[in-house]
Design a protein around this nucleic acid. Structure first.
Lengths: 111, 111
DNA sequence: CCCTTAGTTCGGTCGCCATCAAACTTCGAT
DNA sequence: ATCGAAGTTTGATGGCGACCGAACTAAGGG
């Protein structure tokens, strides 16, 4: 396992969740498109490719949303071939903002 | 007890929390000024006058924020003399969005 | 009755953010 | 070596929301 050395360069930097503010996370989660992404990851309990989300926006806008989610510490991204995989940073977020994910994208939450 | 009949007209309408969407509540809570208001009400566990919040904005802007909070079902307002009192609709919100208030404005949350 | 206190309403400005199309990159497959 | 698939980057646009000041209203006190 492990990522090939030359893959690393394509992986954008991820923040330490400890440095992320509540303001940042809320700003990320307030957008319905981004909340749909996080909801899907939360429900799937598995990594998902960017293409699998069926978002109501163009690809460039989707890229923007993934970028915001990454910067806010909510997701981690890595490449598999030409696909970008997304991981919900569940445990880290839960430790820093207990109960937040469940309250916002947990089961039974409306879209 | 009870509110005088002619007081009623000065009280703006409050939505049924059941009809409020998660989107609305998140949009209300994403603003730091509004979150400061809700945090104070949450911590005080009592009704507070509009003037007691020490907000970093003008009075007209503060009015705007209280209006948004009212429309989102987070607070209830009523008059006492020339003062407007604010009540956090804690139980109703908790029933509709379990864990949300605690996660966003609960004890230990950063500003 | 006048003044103060507390907050609202109105009109307008400004900045940010979601959005898109177009051109580009990178990989895998043919 | 070419093509298609997947996503990025860039530049531009549009709309919404936070903000303010000024004028206003409503209640209570002197």
């Amino acid at each position: 396992m492990g990522v090939r050395e030359d893959e690393k360069d394509r992986i954008p930097s991820h923040p330490d969740v400890g440095t992320v503010t509540l303001q940042q996370v809320l700003e990320a989660l307030v957008d319905p498109v981004r909340r749909k992404i996080v909801s899907a990851l939360y429900a799937a309990d598995d990594d998902l490719r960017c293409g699998t989300f069926d978002l109501p926006v163009s690809k460039s806008t989707a890229t923007h949303h993934f970028h915001v989610l990454r910067d806010s510490g909510l997701i981690r991204q890595y490449y598999v071939g030409t696909s970008r995989m997304n991981t919900l940073r569940r445990k880290e977020i839960e430790r820093r903002f207990p109960g937040l994910l469940a309250a916002v994208v947990g089961p039974g939450r409306e879209v």
